[in-house]
């Protein structure tokens, strides 16, 4: 049993899941906004990164890890609400290119401002989870306390979001506003408020993701820490379907596992190439995502 758990394929699956839950969280964060506003938030990673700096460096530099994390998530939610009210509001009803360009510009502003204030050098966060793998019968299991913490946190966040959407009145309103805005207004749903709440939830998820990414002992927090993660998260979301939260999660985790096998058996450098290839092929075959039902394009 121990030999099996520490074997190469099982190790790859474990490492893959650890990476994959992060991609899945980014994908979830993107889907939350896409569903309601048809907007792909290219600044998602940068907003989350800023939230982490605010929590761990600006407001609570000497505080306990968990306190700083809560501050970061609150800051993330606030940044989301401000972005929606201050910037995105101006872009509703414009050609679909405009929001893309605006969010890319916002990404550039956020990363530059973060680097100007906090410099580009990496900072470690005071996570108390060891990055050293557990041992099983003298061999390493490809799972460390830190990885377990990442996976558990991701599952908690996903469960929390799913709970809101499935079991609460707010979730019903959020879904209705995304699916049928005009009908929802006629039934008394304040659709504009729902859009803001969608951004708050999405940015909250983003902030947790960025804290997890930056807590990694080997990378730490930098202004561009989320760039690569965002790219993989987008690829996961696009493969799974930007309309489908479940699809985004499934494809995030799957992508993590597949890429880990590529990294282990082929070459670590080829990972992003393979991801790009997967994206191109899957978009060619199913442009609306693997996990979405076929919908007729509206003419």
């Amino acid at each position: 049993m121990n030999a099996f758990l520490t074997s190469r394929p099982v190790s790859d699956v474990l490492t893959g899941v650890t990476n994959g839950v992060i991609y899945a969280l980014v994908a979830l964060s993107l889907v939350l906004i896409w569903r309601s506003a048809r907007l792909l938030n290219f600044a998602q990673g940068a907003m989350a990164m800023i939230a982490t700096y605010v929590g761990f460096v600006a407001i609570a530099p000497h505080a306990n890890y968990w306190v700083a994390m809560v501050v970061s998530v609150v800051a993330g939610c606030l940044i989301g609400a401000l972005t929606e009210r201050g910037l995105v509001r101006w872009l509703y009803g414009k050609p679909e290119l405009n929001p893309v360009v605006a969010m890319v510009g916002f990404l550039l502003v956020l990363e530059s401002v973060a680097a100007a204030i906090w410099s580009t050098s990496s900072r470690g966060l005071p996570s108390s989870f060891s990055p050293i793998d557990w041992q099983l019968g003298g061999r390493p299991l490809a799972l460390s306390p830190f990885a377990a913490y990442e996976i558990v946190t991701a599952l908690v966040v996903m469960g929390f979001i799913a709970g809101i959407f499935r079991f609460t009145k707010l979730g019903l309103r959020l879904r209705a506003a995304a699916l049928a805005p005009e009908v929802s207004r006629l039934l008394g749903v304040r659709v504009n408020r729902m859009l803001t709440i969608g951004w708050i939830l999405s940015s909250g998820v983003g902030a947790v993701t960025a804290v997890l990414v930056a807590s990694n002992y080997f990378t730490g927090l930098t202004p561009t820490a989320m760039d690569g993660v965002f790219a993989f998260g987008f690829i996961a979301a696009a493969i799974g379907g930007l309309d489908s939260p479940g699809g985004a999660l499934a494809s995030g985790v799957t992508l993590g596992i597949v890429l880990q096998f590529v990294s282990d058996y082929v070459n670590a450098n080829d990972v992003i190439l393979v991801a790009l290839g997967l994206l191109i092929v899957s978009l060619m075959v199913r442009p609306n995502g693997v996990f979405t039902r076929d919908a007729q394009r509206r003419v």
Binding site: R175, L179, A180, L187
Partner: peptide, 18 residues
């Protein structure tokens, strides 16, 4: 304006929300 992705009951619950 029935929301097809919702169940019958979810549609009604949405109407009862106010």
């Amino acid at each position: 304006g029935v929301i097809g992705e919702f169940t019958v009951e979810e549609n009604l619950r949405l109407g009862a929300m106010i």
